[in-house]
Design a protein around this nucleic acid. Structure first.
Lengths: 232, 232, 232, 232
DNA sequence: GATGAATGAGGTTTCATTCAT
DNA sequence: TATGAATGAAACCTCATTCAT
């Protein structure tokens, strides 16, 4: 199996949080902030992310974000109506990156190469989650809590990979490797669920003393076989 | 495949919510409540669960629980130090039931029977989640938020199934059906993750128009093969 | 002219603010407060009225009312959703008393007695306003600001006197003392407006050095003649 | 009765809002603004008036005025120390116009012409109020709230008409038409009160379904008789 | 002259929590 | 056992106001 890290970098690089392509967003009062304003906005977003990394979402207060960013709550409210809004922006950014996971599915799935492709997909997924853990945690959370904005975001962001994977399953189905009574989309969805959950709940595996290598191996094996219907 | 519902009943029966096995617990002031007190306590727990079912955990307030239970906040505090404590009790109850999932693993995995066993496991899992969704949602949530009490509870409750499944994988490994380099526990953990996540995020599949049947089929196939290493 | 004060007492006695007949009103959470709660509620209302007496309505803050009442803002919110609500209750009380102004119209309007009746009405009006000035001021204010609840209250409370007066005008119209082309209700409304405004803006007359006696005389003369169409 | 509109025009013409006679006033920093500055100042005033027309005075914020005027709060503060100051300027303008109401009193009050004069006065009053309602509303309001600057303004602006009217009453008193024990100023004040209140609280009459015609008729009749002491 | 941006200050609200009954 | 009432404490949120550009 070839360990090609370049792919992963491209996919998971958070871009440093500085060069923000979505900078032209309006503030709360409707006006588009200028240079300085954008910087402040970004700073607030970054601090939000940092705090998400440390404490719980439930306990994330405007005051704290503002304090950490070296400003006042009033300033925060100039850019976001509430904490949720700020987090939603972060989630949006993370969701955009998720779309790129799709590229990892666009490899060779037949023969020995398939095993590598599966492994790359698994790694990409785990890395992606690792890199965006704090934000993704909130997305899961809010989704579970029934917040539709987050739920939609989540569905949207995982939709692309799932469909791509489903596509591949479909090919192997036409190929007769995968039984015809199987629903490709259901299968793809199940695999993505597996990857997402495993990525999100690493601590469980740590509890059992399972290392990342073993995890990757198990995930890859299941992904590969489930997609192709073939023993590696 | 035999549709044996008795198994499911045994596993998912919530116990009616009335006959509380953990009834003899002391109240906050240290004394063991009498008959009437126990009823109040139970009522509060039930109402907590109901509210969990409807609103979000974040918005669950002592006042609301008390009001719904027809008592006052002060009464609540006679039995629980805070909302979390009450939820923890509920979670404990749910965790106890989870242990029974293990029984579903104790079937025949070889030959055609294995497919049925896999399917029963999948069903049992989905049903279990369905029946305890509100509480499980909070468990996931709090776990994600880093709450160790919930995390331990969660690990503990899924530990049994995972170990049982790992056991089976080990058998097939000795059997040479599953490659020796695979870590059985990692594999079992991954499968449980898949089941848990799929069960928890049903809305995603609904979004794609996937029915429970198809979902079960896909899950079963992957479980069966990953465990046994054999095409069905 | 007979100076019968008993009538006025009956009409304008604020009842001491303690024996509240409308005591069974629910608090914000829907429950009806008990003895102690009612007392607190009343205390808050009374303090609200006092503060209204001193400062401006615009600057009336929950904190201040609470402080003056010797409680905390939180307590205030247990009884009223906001300052306006409390004031509205006071206004309601004042409005109820206004209905009794009507009795003053039920006198003899013909002949010399009419002059006395007019004078009694004028006095009753001025006294009523004097006794309830702070609250009435807010009613006028809020009404002007377009607040419909206050406006309705105002209309409702002055409706009775106006109609009663209109009735009397109508009698003199049938009598041919008042020209037939005159609209009795319009006339009554105009007179009430005159009384209300004069009562409300006493400072203007003070500025001109006009004493209450002279004011009463002028008002009475206009009321008497406008109603009866006859020189006194 | 002659419907002479020219009189009304003269009285109620708001001056177009552009040709500001009080233009040479200094800004907050003490310097006299130039052409462009004056325009900004005027724009702010006009917007203030517009907002007064729509929302309540209580809710009038610097930010809102500035936004509506297409400028920033900072700019507002270059011309006015606070919202009240701007409103005071507007009130001043309205007060100036009020002085002209006096002209309406300078008509023939004897004989049949008196009825027309009364009617013209009434009309002028109602029109004046209608044209300046938003500002006058605030004047009443602030006056009621005890704001002395507004109160003085109000007294000052109605002082002229009242004195003029009092003058006329005095004439009829010397004439023996009006009883000698009547205080002419009190009488005039009461009439002005009646006119002001009626004009300000039109909604009350609308509630009773009374049309402007009937209103004018009733007011005129009362004014005429109270002033002259004679049946029309 | 104009204004983007920042923020101190202050009132509002909400709850968890306690206590006397 | 149960609970009416009260409240400290902590966020929230909004503005008037300022200042550097």
């Amino acid at each position: 199996m070839v360990d090609d890290d370049r792919h992963l970098r491209a996919v998971t690089d958070p871009g440093g949080g500085q060069a923000d392509p979505a900078a032209e967003l309006p503030a709360v009062d409707g006006r588009v902030p200028g240079r300085r304003g954008q910087a402040t906005r970004r700073k607030l977003l970054d601090c939000t992310k940092e705090m998400l990394d440390q404490g719980s979402y439930r306990d994330l207060k405007v005051v704290d974000i503002a304090r950490r960013a070296g400003t006042s709550p009033a300033t925060f409210y100039q850019y976001f109506p509430d904490v949720e809004a700020a987090v939603l922006v972060l989630a949006e950014e993370v969701a955009v990156r998720a779309t790129q996971l799709t590229e990892l599915v666009d490899g060779e799935w037949k023969g020995r190469g398939g095993v590598d492709t599966a492994r790359r997909l698994v790694r990409g997924f785990l890395d992606y989650w690792e890199d965006n853990r704090p934000v993704l945690r909130v997305v899961e959370l809010a989704t579970e809590e029934g917040d539709l904005r987050f739920r939609n975001l989540r569905v949207r962001s995982l939709n692309a990979v799932t469909r791509a994977l489903s596509e591949v399953v479909g090919q192997f189905q036409r190929n007769a490797s995968v039984p015809s009574e199987i629903d490709p989309m259901a299968t793809a969805g199940v695999l993505v669920a597996m990857l997402a959950h495993t990525a999100a709940h690493r601590y469980g595996f740590e509890f059992w003393g399972i290392r990342r290598d073993a995890l990757e191996a198990s995930l890859s094996r299941t992904v590969y076989w489930t997609v192709t219907g073939q023993k590696q």
